[in-house]
Design a protein around this nucleic acid. Sequence first.
DNA 1: CTGAATCCTTGTTGATACTG
DNA 2: CAGTATCAACAAGGATTCAG
Lengths: 126, 126
Amino acid sequence: MKPTDTQDIATCQRISAMLSRIGDKWTLLIVRALGREPMRFNALKRELGSISQKMLTQTLRNLERDGMVSRTVTPSTPPQVEYALTAMGHDLFRPIAALAEWTWTHADAIEAARAAYDGRSGQDLR
Amino acid sequence: MKPTDTQDIATCQRISAMLSRIGDKWTLLIVRALGREPMRFNALKRELGSISQKMLTQTLRNLERDGMVSRTVTPSTPPQVEYALTAMGHDLFRPIAALAEWTWTHADAIEAARAAYDGRSGQDLR
DNA sequence: CTGAATCCTTGTTGATACTG
DNA sequence: CAGTATCAACAAGGATTCAG
């Protein structure tokens, strides 16, 4: 048995799982919105525009479960629920920002690579 | 390119798309394998073990299209196709490694947050 | 050996309706 | 206001078969 390999692979998959979550359709936008200021459910919904309430709830639950977002209920009429980034949630922002920076600076190169690739293999297609 | 531009929503979605791709089931493992050394198709397949041929092809095509991986065909019998990381592919490794590092160092905290959350809301369920 | 094409199962997303 | 529940549409992943 090779513990190093299986360990590395397991770690790799864990990181993939994290990337998948962060990279899903809404997480980044939500984290970004909450990164500016804590917000209530419907304010968040308005901010994101086209998100369904189901996906907003679901994504917030995931973030809450992972300890990235806190959920504070104020029992009143109407009820108020405020979402905010936790310390860990804020912390996550640093490596994300680095990756964002990379994506931003390489966007043109990627675009060019895609155009070149599509030009090569898509000439007679579509 | 100001850093404030990274706060733009379109950019945010672009980064999400990038994260989604990198975070998909096989990309990271493939990039990691190719990061060590260029490899041929079946060597890669053996290395990854449980990947289907379809997903390997598909993921490699995506990486190739984005300019992260190069594909070199040597016409012979049997044909040889070698995949390798491009300069940009290697470059991508830095911010990914930062995120991996973050995930690794926060794994326990995330695990704990999940356990706490599941303990809170799962007591009377299921 | 390196793939493309097909089918099938599963998971994810979204629209809609309803509740406290 | 802040959700939950349900269902339909669609995309992703995997197994299998065929081909250069």
